[in-house]
Structures are given as C-alpha cells and as structure tokens.
Design a protein around this nucleic acid. Structure first.
Lengths: 199, 199, 199, 199
DNA sequence: TATGAATGAGTCTTCATTCAT
DNA sequence: GATGAATGAAGACTCATTCAT
C-alpha cells in the first residue's frame, strides 16, 4: 500500500515534469502529516522533504492551505484502497462479523492507517471546509457494511471503528480480536432484531 | 458548568491579583482550545483573550507548553464533573443501559463537552506526554461503567462513546437516543454472555 | 583563597542582615562572572544563585551595571590576596626570577585566577569606566616587581604575565616552569643592563 | 586595509545581489565586533548597521552564531594580511629583533588590529568552539618567528605580544619601541643559549 | 524595609508570501 | 515556466526595571 512504501523517496521530480513535481509535493506533505511528532506543515518543510526548491511549493499551490488540502485528499485515496480491500473481503465472506473483525484488527495494528484517520480528523475538526474529507472514511465504511447488516448497524459499527481507531492512537495497544468480533456481532444482531428488541 | 459561562469574559483581572490572573489565563487558553476554528495557542492570543498584557503569559507560565497543560488540566476538571454526574445517575438507575444512553445522548448534544474531548484528544495525539490527560476521560468512563457491566463491556462501551463523540464533532448531528440505547444494551449483553456466545 | 571556597554556598543571608545580603549578591554575581560558559549577568540569575528574592537585586543595587561593578571589585579583592602572597614570597627570596616564576606557574594552573583576570579584562575592554579595575592587577604586579628589578623590567614582566594568562585561557595548558623562569630571568637581565646592552 | 575603510558605509546592497548582501552583513557584524563600546551582536544591530532589513540577517545566516563566526573569520583574514606582511619584513631583515620590534610597534599603534585580536579573544574565551580562530594569530605569529629564533623563543615572544596587545587595549598607550626591542632581543637570546643559562 | 507582581521592549527565529529574474 | 531572493509579521521567550504592597 502506497502509504508504507519508502516514504521520503520522492516521486520522479525531473525538471519539466509538472505532474510529477506536483505529486511529489503532495506526497511529501502527506508524509509530513502522518509523522507522529507532527510538526506543522510549512512550505520549507514540504519542499525539503520532496527534494524540490522552495519556489515550487508556491508555484504549484497558491497557498499552503491548498497544499494541505491536496495532501489530505491524497490520504483519502490511500483509505479508499483499504476500503476496497475490505469490501472485497466481506463480499466473499460467510461470516461477515468474523471477516470484518479480522479486517478491523489488522487495520488497527497498521500504524499508518491509524495516523491517516487521525490526521484527517484533526484537520477537519478545526477546518469545517475539510469535514467532507474526513467523513469520507466513515461514509465509505458505512456504505460497505450496509449491504451486509443494514444502514443502522453499519453506522453503529462505523462509529465503533472510529472509537477503536482513536483509542489505539492514544493507547498503542489496540482492542483484541475476540473483543472486536464480539462487539461487531452484537451490534449486527441488535439492529437485525431491533423491532422486537426495543418494543 | 464553567465551560459554558460567558467565555471570553475574562476572570477578575484586577492588578495585583496573581491568583485571579493565573486563572484568567488558564481560562482563556482553555476557551481558545475549545474554539471550533481553533487557531493554535499562542501567547499573544491567550493574552488578548484574557484581556491581559502579553508579559503576563510568560510571567505566570514558564512556557507556552506549561500554559497549554494547565488549560488541558482545567478541561479534565470539567469532564470530571460530568463523570461524577453520570456515576451518580447510574448508581440510582434500574435500567443501566437506558440511563446511560440518556446521559450519553445529553452529553453528545452538549457542544462544549464534545469539544473538550476533542481538544484533549488532539493535544495528546501529538504530545505523548499529555496522553494520560486525554485518557482520563476514557479510563474514568470505563471505571464508572465497570461495576454495572463488567470491565470488558465497559471498555467496549467507552470505545463506542469515543467514536460517537468524535463523530458528532464532524457531523454536528449526534446519533439518536434509540440507537444509542440499542447499542449499549447490545454491548452489555454480548459481554455478559460471552462464554456461551462465542463458543 | 576565597575564590575557591565552595562557591554557590551564599553568605549568611538571614533576613534583616542588609550587609550579608549585599555581600551574598556580590558574591553570586562574581561567581557567575567566572563561570566558563559565561552567561550574561541578569538580575534573575544573580538572585537565584544567591538564593535571594529577585527584588533584593534591585533593592541593593540601583542597576545591573552597578551590581556588575561591585562584583568585579570583589574579584579584584581576590587578586589582591594573590598579590600580597606573591609580594611576601619575593621579599624573602634569594633568586627573585626563580621565585616569581614558581609563583606565576602556580597561578597559571589555578583556573579561578585565570578566569578572574579574563573576566576583568573582558568587562573593561567594552566598558572604559571599568578599566581601572582591570589594570589593578597589572599595576599591582608591576608595583610588586619593581623594587626587585626596576620599573622597566617590572612592566615588561607584567606584560608577559598577562600574555601568559590569556594564553592559558585559550590553550588550557600553560607554559612550563623552565620556560617561565628563563623568560623572566632574561627580561630582568635585559633591563638591568640596558644602558650597555643597546648602545 | 579593509578594516579601516569607512566602516558603517555598508557594502553594495542593491537588491538581488546575494553575494553583496552576505558580505555586507559579515562586514557589519565584524565592524560591530570591533566597536570599543561593544554591545553584543544582535540581528537587529547587524541589519541596521548593514542598512539591510532584519529578515536579511536570518535569510543569509541560519543563526546569529553562524553570522558571528563568519564575522570572526573575516577578522582572521585581516590578521593574515598582517602576518604575511610581518613575515616578508622579517625574511629580509638583518636584525630580526629590531625588525620585528618595529613591526610590533606599528601594529600596537593600529587600533583596528588590536581590536581584532581582542574581539577574537573575547569570542573564543566563552565559546570553546571558536578557540581555533583566536589561536590562529598566535600560531601564525609563532610560526613566522620560529625560523628566525627557534620554536621556544618564538612561543615566548608570541606570548609577550599577546600581553602587549591586550595591555594596549586597556591602556591606549602602547609600550615604546626601545622597550619592545630590548624585550624581544632578550627573549631570543635567552632561548638561544638556554642550555648554558639554566644549568 | 523588602519583595513579588507586572510589562513592554527586545532577544532569536520561522515563515507565508511576493516578486525579480 | 521556475526559483531563489526578499521581508515584515509573528512566534516563544527573557529581562531590566518599576511599583504596589
């Protein structure tokens, strides 16, 4: 997955390759955003990380904010890959709860994924304009789960996933697989039978 | 609750009132931290918000980081009040799931509470030293729930709460009460009967 | 010798002992001046070092400059002790050159003495008003040597001593005793017989 | 010699002349360092002296320390010119002692040269990393004298020169030429015949 | 008499952005 | 099309000094 291939090794940035340079900058900015000791983004830092001249950052992006946005967008693309992978797994699974729990467990142990989620969340909280980007993951996940358990359960599970993700960002040790399985199964079941349950 | 009393209206800042000034600064910093379009904390911003001269910020706090920490600590105190209130509600409740769902629902609709949680989370993600502060809420919540549903369920519910909190921070409209109730009940039940359930 | 007795152990600074406090401040400032990694003097640093409240520094000295001056004066007092000791040694010596060389050699290996000289020099170079203080050592030394070798030789030897002192401040390893002896003897002899020598 | 050409008259500082601006800054810093009533170096002071905006100082030098070092290096270059001049004088002289005394006398009457020496010394005393710079003069001088009088005498003479230099920095009136001559001759002779002398 | 509170000026430094080339 | 030069605003922080108490 892109997020993990030797970051810092900037994209092809030969002169006269506007597209490549643009990408290299976005990549560099995205990498910076994932850095745990997250220094704030700055033109200089991005340029240095991308191995490109300072001027390039303002040449390709009219403001730092625009660059940040592009970087966050890049992050959502990485998440899309993860989502796609989850979707295909689920569609072939007999036991959706078990399959998804497994996926989630893997995901939570993957530092990059967690950092992406966190980076998007942080950026979005303080910048309302970026909220759609951060909700991309949530909506995507709910969308994938929905066919397997209905919209309500999907939403509940997605909320739980967010909680688990942010939890591991602070705790380092994620919830264990059995717990994840149990929770997901319970949430699915609860919504499957909700009419009877709560009457 | 303090967090909601006219923010920006600085505390008593009469000259020669060290205690009051210190508090005013902490208050101002805390307020700033809760601001949705949160600019980063800065001496200047805190001073301006507190209606105090710039020098006061460095006179009372030897570094901005120290001031930030004091502000975050202040935030956790507000959370403690919320936790205490939840604890007392639960201890008197017949139906714990229902009672807690109600509490949670109220909480999620209370913008300040949500912002406090978010502010603590953001601060802690980038500053490992502050993680204990951010986990205060999680651990406190789990601690309160535990007697009523066992540690496992408590943990699962707390994780879900975090998810729901961060979700509303981006979505504005929180999960509805019935959903919350259903989820909590399901999580409690799942862990109550886990031995049979997953065999 | 005062300069070496546990510095930092401030003088008796019980309240209601103005003299003691004044001294403690001067002492602390003098110590600070000798510190190799010479941070600049500041009210706060002096107060901290003396274990006295900040206000005391401005209460007893109307400006930092005045405090600095007092500290430098204190330094010259330490030098006076050294001068007195040298004087008495020389007055009892058969071979003045040998005796003084010995003294000088000891002196150059005594870090504090060297630092005092350097501190006075630095202070005086940039502050003409303080030059008399820095010349105190030079004049004192020349005065002591004069009776033994005449004013001209005394002056030459004193100049050489300054050179040797500043040299060791940068080099750490001072000139060896035989060299010192040879130089001093030569300078004495040269001036003793100057009429014949240079005709 | 550069050091004496109208100081304060900044170098060519036309916009878009990086080389010129860099030089102007170094020059300004060097000038400031030589100022008798030397205030500490500061970005603002250097910029003002160079007639350049504040930002220029940090644009060309990543830290004040780096700027200081560049300025001190500049100073050593001036000293090198003096050293070269001395070397060539000596190599053509019949009477080395007389020739060098003459040189030294001229040097001591040249305020800038003295100030350079002092500035290097002061900088080096508090900043061990800069000691090589300050020793440049001493080692250079000893190196030049060595062929004419042997390493030991050269060292002794160089030490004496340092003393004389620092002496004049505080006294304004330097040692007179005859004295210098006598001292140098004596030092040369003492080391020439040291084996017999000290037996 | 003593002292901690108070603050504005000034310290170094970073940086977004503009612009000449 | 590209980029390094350029700079003023702002960042955190230190501090001499004043002053109320």
């Amino acid at each position: 997955m892109a997020a993990t291939t030797k970051r810092g090794a900037a994209a092809p940035k030969t002169r006269r390759d506007p597209e490549g340079r643009r990408k290299a900058l976005v990549q560099a900015a995205a990498d910076l955003l994932l850095e745990v000791d997250g220094e704030e983004l700055s033109h200089r830092r991005v340029a240095a990380r991308a191995g490109l001249p300072l001027g390039a950052t303002t040449y390709y992006f009219s403001s730092l904010e625009e660059l940040r946005e592009a970087a966050l967008l890049r992050l959502t693309e990485w998440m899309d890959e993860a989502l796609a992978s989850i979707a295909s797994t689920l569609s072939e699974a007999d036991d959706v709860a078990a399959a998804f729990a497994e996926n989630l467990h893997t995901y939570l142990n993957w530092r990059d994924q967690v950092q992406i989620d966190v980076a998007l969340f942080i950026a979005a909280v303080r910048r309302p304009a970026l909220r759609p980007l951060a909700l991309h993951w949530f909506d995507g996940l709910a969308g994938i789960l929905s066919p397997h358990m209905g919209p309500q359960a999907a939403r509940a599970v997605a909320v739980f996933c967010d909680g688990a993700t942010h939890h591991v960002a602070l705790r380092d040790e994620p919830l264990d697989l059995p717990t994840l399985h149990r929770v997901i199964a319970a949430l699915m079941q609860a919504h499957a039978s909700k009419t009877e349950d709560l009457k």
